[in-house]
Computed example of a mutant assay.
Amino acid sequence: MDKLTQGIEQMQQHNYEEAARLFTESIDENPEEPVGYINFGNLLTHMNEYERAERFFNRAIELNAEAATAYYGLGNVYYDQEKYTKAQEQFIHAVKNGLDEADVHFMLGMTFVHQEYTKLALPYLLRAAELAPEDVDIQFQYGLCLAQNGQIEEAEKAMNGVLQLEKEHSDAHYNLGVVSLHKEDARGALEHFNRALEINSEHMLAAHAKAQVEQALE
């Protein structure tokens, strides 16, 4: 097993010092190979050492301007610091350089969501949802974005899909309650708000919505 693979294993086991040692040795042995810098950058991002991580990803890009995962890593550095426009640029570079994985499309979509450009977010979240049908977070955010774009029936399908993956998803029930209100089904809405509160008694939005519906029904 090479040092990069060992380093990734150590990182997954949260043995960050050992991972750093292995990545450093790998870079020393292959200083012109971008992959060592990318892995070290990922490790530094995990450790919230964003300035150092940025330097490592930029070094990887200097060595190979088409290193898609370096752009993706750099995007994560900016995203974690809430620099969404800068993150967006890097994720777009990653996609242009051939990275077609759920995570990059999801992160790109979320940069638009955070800037309230939900129309622009939708195609990226759709692509992420297609690539990762079993990923609860991706499916939920896609459903939420559909709702924000007024695609209520599609949003309902997506939220029901989330519940198939995770029955106890309080936010999916809350959003299905909101969908029911759009369809003027107050009783159906109440069922979903109650279910959301059974799963999470501190779900403030569900509690507020439930009180309003009960008041209207009275």
Rank of each mutant, 00 (worst) to 15 (best):
residue 54 E to R: 15
residue 104 V to S: 02
residue 129 A to Q: 01
residue 98 G to E: 10
residue 98 G to H: 10
residue 60 A to I: 13
residue 21 R to G: 06
residue 67 A to P: 00
residue 112 F to A: 08
residue 20 A to Y: 12
residue 70 A to D: 00
residue 92 I to M: 06
residue 93 H to V: 00
residue 25 E to R: 05
residue 119 K to N: 09
residue 10 Q to P: 02
residue 104 V to G: 03
residue 44 L to K: 10
residue 86 K to V: 10
residue 80 D to S: 12
residue 103 D to H: 11
residue 82 E to Q: 15
residue 62 E to H: 12
residue 19 A to N: 06
residue 84 Y to E: 01
residue 51 E to Q: 15
residue 8 I to S: 02
residue 63 L to D: 04
residue 34 P to F: 02
residue 63 L to N: 09
residue 102 A to R: 13
residue 122 L to K: 12
residue 75 G to H: 01
residue 109 G to R: 04
residue 118 T to C: 11
residue 7 G to Y: 09
residue 98 G to F: 06
residue 24 T to N: 14
residue 109 G to Q: 08
residue 30 N to Q: 15
residue 81 Q to H: 13
residue 52 R to V: 07
residue 42 N to I: 06
residue 31 P to I: 12
residue 15 N to K: 15
residue 121 A to H: 01
residue 127 R to K: 15
residue 117 Y to T: 01
residue 123 P to W: 11
residue 12 Q to W: 06
residue 18 E to P: 00
residue 85 T to Q: 15
residue 75 G to K: 02
residue 117 Y to N: 10
residue 101 E to I: 13
residue 53 A to E: 02
residue 94 A to W: 02
residue 33 E to S: 08
residue 65 A to G: 12
residue 96 K to H: 10
residue 60 A to C: 10
residue 89 E to M: 09
residue 13 Q to T: 07
residue 29 E to Q: 14
residue 40 F to V: 05
residue 116 E to L: 11
residue 92 I to D: 00
residue 112 F to I: 06
residue 127 R to V: 05
residue 38 I to D: 00
residue 127 R to I: 06
residue 96 K to M: 05
residue 20 A to R: 14
residue 33 E to D: 12
residue 12 Q to L: 13
residue 12 Q to T: 08
residue 74 L to N: 05
